[in-house]
């Protein structure tokens, strides 16, 4: 016999909780749904008032995103002959022909190189630094950790001018390397702090056992600590990637051509005839890599492999 009775939530309470949760979920996902939907609207549907919830989907936005187009006189169009592909047909409605690919593909690729490059570097350096801070007697350890954190206490863009001048002197302006180094520098503080927390949680006994089992300190780190830190490394990588992927201000300031990433490029599409569906299509596609990356690493986030092997 238990001395306490356990109160079950009433049906009304369950309903209220359910409605709140679903309502909140809808509220947060609504802008995303709107962006995705706008990508499949025609330009006139996209700016229709009242907004159209039901519309006839078209790939016009995506075609416009990936191409540059030229308007032609009816005579010139006559000369070219009827459109041959589905995307030709879409642009022909506006008396236009496709004159070449847009720069979206390049910019997207730049984002991939810079985003993943800086994420790899932040996590790699962050793991080594976090391990050292977690395990070794580092002089002024607390002060150093605070200093590392303090680099995030102002918005990074506050030092934009010095960085701009520095990059110009070093020839790093508008280069992939420059952007990777910059995003790594910004992300490193977050990565060191997050990873130190995760590595602190891994009992030091495992490395001691490995040291006695005939391994060097680095081998013990690599063979014993790293496999147990995957959860922390995965979540840190996701945070670093999201920052580098979405960063706008530095990208506007420091890149213009070769190394320009997608975020500063996407808004420039609007300039060409208020093409909101193309902007929405660009934003939608831009979401995909981060989502895929997060889903791929999800199983590492959920798995607590260190559970239970050390008696406390």
């Amino acid at each position: 016999m238990s001395g306490y009775s356990i109160t079950e939530p009433t049906l009304a309470q369950k309903w209220i909780a359910g409605v709140l949760v679903v309502g909140y979920a809808l509220l947060t996902i609504l802008p995303l749904i709107w962006i995705i939907a706008t990508g499949f609207k025609s330009p006139s549907d996209a700016i229709a008032y009242p907004p159209k919830v039901v519309f006839e989907p078209t790939l016009e936005g995506y075609v416009n995103l990936f191409t540059t187009r030229t308007r032609m006189s009816p005579e010139a169009l006559e000369e070219i002959g009827p459109p041959e592909t589905w995307y030709d047909r879409i642009v022909r409605q506006y008396d236009m022909v496709i004159s070449g690919p847009s720069r979206y593909g390049e910019r997207f690729l730049n984002s991939v190189v810079i985003g993943f490059g800086s994420t790899f570097l932040s996590v790699f350096l962050g793991t080594l630094a976090a391990y050292a801070f977690s395990r070794f007697k580092v002089p002024l350890k607390d002060d150093l950790m605070f200093f590392i954190l303090s680099t995030r206490m102002m918005p990074p863009i506050a030092v934009a001018i010095p960085i701009f001048l520095m990059f110009r002197q070093l020839g790093l302006s508008d280069t992939h390397l420059g952007m990777i180094l910059l995003y790594t520098a910004v992300n490193l503080s977050l990565s060191v702090w997050l990873l130190k927390g995760f590595i602190d949680e891994i009992p030091v006994e495992y490395e001691e056992a490995a040291l006695i089992d005939g391994y060097t300190r680095f081998q013990a780190f690599y063979k014993v600590v790293l496999p147990q830190a995957t959860t922390g490394i995965a979540s840190t990588a996701i945070f670093c990637l999201i920052f580098a992927w979405n960063e706008y201000a530095f990208a506007v300031l420091l890149t213009s051509g070769t190394a320009q990433t997608a975020p500063p490029f996407i808004p420039t599409i609007i300039g060409v005839g208020k093409d909101w569906p193309a902007v929405a299509a660009g934003a939608t596609l831009f979401l995909v890599p981060v989502m895929v990356f997060t889903i791929l690493l999800r199983k590492h986030l959920l798995r607590g492999i260190t559970f239970g092997a050390v008696r406390k």
Partner: peptide, 14 residues
């Protein structure tokens, strides 16, 4: 070249 058995076992969990 010593072998040690720890009180907390310290088996490699992975």
């Amino acid at each position: 070249n010593v072998a040690m058995v720890f009180q907390q076992y310290s088996l490699y969990p992975h």
